[in-house]
């Protein structure tokens, strides 16, 4: 059920946002952002869904279908799935930078509490 997917994506997004807004532990904040990111993937894949469609592997038509049926939207939207792939690659890079910054913060300040890493204000 596709509406269920949308609801799940929204719930995951809000859960991640809640973590980012309320947790002070830097690692937990990174995990919250990761959760938000995953929810956007779920959303994109659900956008790509079409009732009765098959995976967008266009080398051969699926069993029992003719090639021309593919062009009539009988596959899930490959562009949105490509969005996801691109975003996953970017997400990996961002998470790596995130975690290395957290490691440096932990080495420097000897804490992971965001409230004790706030010298700049006003």
């Amino acid at each position: 059920m596709i509406v269920g997917n949308y609801l799940a994506a929204a719930a995951l997004f809000c859960l991640g946002l809640h973590t980012v807004l309320t947790r002070r532990n830097l690692v937990r904040m990174v995990m919250g952002l990761s959760l938000m990111e995953s929810s956007t993937y779920l959303l994109m894949i659900s956008f790509a869904y079409r009732a009765g469609s098959t995976a967008p592997v266009l080398l051969d038509p699926p069993h029992g279908k003719k090639p021309e049926q593919l062009a009539h939207g009988n596959v899930a939207d490959p562009v949105l799935q490509n969005f996801c792939l691109t975003a996953i690659v970017i997400g990996v890079a961002v998470t790596a930078v995130f975690l290395s910054v957290v490691v440096r913060v932990a080495q420097h300040y000897r804490t992971l509490d965001a409230d004790r890493v706030r010298a700049m204000r006003g």
């Binding site: 957290v102 440096r104 300040y109 890493v117 706030r118 700049m120």
Partner: peptide, 10 residues
């Protein structure tokens, strides 16, 4: 710089 990097990241 570390504090700033974390904020711009988030």
């Amino acid at each position: 710089a570390l504090e700033a990097a974390f904020k711009i990241l988030v």
